[in-house]
Design a protein around this nucleic acid. Structure first.
Lengths: 230, 230
DNA sequence: GCAAAAGTGTTCGTACTACACCCATGG
DNA sequence: CCATGGGTGTAGTACGAACACTTTTGC
């Protein structure tokens, strides 16, 4: 009854980072395969006895030295039968947001080089990886407006202006500083620390910190995060 | 280099329908396999030379006689390695919304029986299909509030009270009739027909029709559909 | 004292909320 | 004339949008 099937299952990892007021993705230069010399997303074939989410975390670690504990599933790419020219391969894509600045990335087993790539300077990648990144960015943009995930891209303690910039950059919109600050603060899940920014320019700025507990409390009370733009 | 991999790829279809003020899912009773006698979602293994979306449309048609042209990808289930006790199988789940009342469903090749099942009377299903449906319902609820997909569950021409009921039922909330009507009509993508409901009870009600063109126009102008509830 | 970024309040308009009565038909 | 569901308006409130000047520091 069961038809013989020869389809391989891969996972790919989109890791977003934010530095210097720019959004980046983590890319590797492949060592092997027909896509040799192409830049690509970290990823690879799933092992028979591992879950999809473990597979993607393992591959990411093997290829970039980045160790995560959770990635969110994005989409499964399997409509283009020839997306990999060698075999029929479907790929389950996952994404994560990390604080890029103090993350040690280094090429490993399967990768020649690893690099952060600015989102608007991504070259032509192996397979359908450009398409995958496009979809990931769309998801990121959407999610940014209805879940407080921007904080995952920032250090534990951050400036309000960084948060503001992050939103402006990723969503490609202008925001009124006063209204933005008022709104975010009104939610009450940010703690003001008594530390100040080490930056030498202008008036010193207080550092803030996202309070996961307070946020969870709010959620339980039916709170719904939302940032809208004109 | 390439590890040998023996993972099968399946697709499953969640088809939502709405009748008698209730939300339903399409289920089949399986003919074959270890899950014999269990009810399950329509679905099956992907062929090597077909896209994922074609696979799910084909399986749905083969098993239920329902012919769709589009289904939206929901999620890929592959974290539970033993979700199918026979082999390692990952399943890419798709969902669709149909007008249930005039759809001819009939068991076919791979299914013993086909049936609409009320969403709150779903028995214990084969594999992890209860989990899949749960996830589909969550997505449906979310999507209902920010995209005008409710109309896909209704006939071409429908009563306002049906639309209202649909929202109340699926979202399990109360809505103020006047405000709901005002808001939806203010969007301007509903056409009032000059037909009246054939129902014998009470004052005759006008039938409405969703105007896809007007809606697309609005979207192009930056319009964003949204129905919120207290 | 000047450059650079941080911090802060008020007004206005729009949009959501709450709420109750009359209307058209069939039996 | 009664039962049943359809159709409609208004007043109050709350939230988002627009908008500019003062403060603190380093040089």
């Amino acid at each position: 009854m069961e038809n013989l099937q020869n389809i391989r299952v891969a996972v790919d990892a989109i890791v977003f980072g934010y530095k210097n007021n720019n959004l980046y993705v983590l890319l590797i230069e492949q060592k092997f395969g027909s896509a040799d010399k192409y830049w690509a997303l970290p990823g690879g074939l799933v092992k028979e006895d591992e879950s999809l989410s473990n597979a993607v975390i393992r591959e990411l670690h093997e290829e970039t030295n980045v160790q995560l504990t959770f990635m969110e599933q994005l989409y499964t790419f399997g409509d283009d039968i020839h997306r990999d020219s060698r075999n029929r391969v479907i790929s389950v894509a996952y994404y994560a947001l990390v604080e890029a600045s103090n993350l040690e990335i280094k090429a490993d087993t399967d990768a020649e080089r690893v690099q952060w790539c600015k989102i608007d300077e991504i070259p032509s990648l192996a397979f359908d990886h450009n398409l995958i990144i496009e979809k990931a960015i769309a998801r990121l943009k959407a999610k940014l407006t209805y879940e407080p995930i921007g904080f995952d891209l920032l250090p534990e303690e951050f400036l309000f202006s960084d948060l503001e910039n992050l939103y402006c950059t990723i969503l490609e919109k202008e925001i009124d500083r006063r209204n933005f600050r008022k709104k975010i603060l009104s939610y009450g899940f940010l703690d003001q620390t008594d530390h100040f920014s080490p930056i030498k320019n202008g008036r010193p700025a207080k550092l803030f910190r996202f309070n996961q507990l307070k946020y969870s409390d709010l959620i339980n009370k039916g709170f719904h995060f939302e940032i809208k733009f004109a």
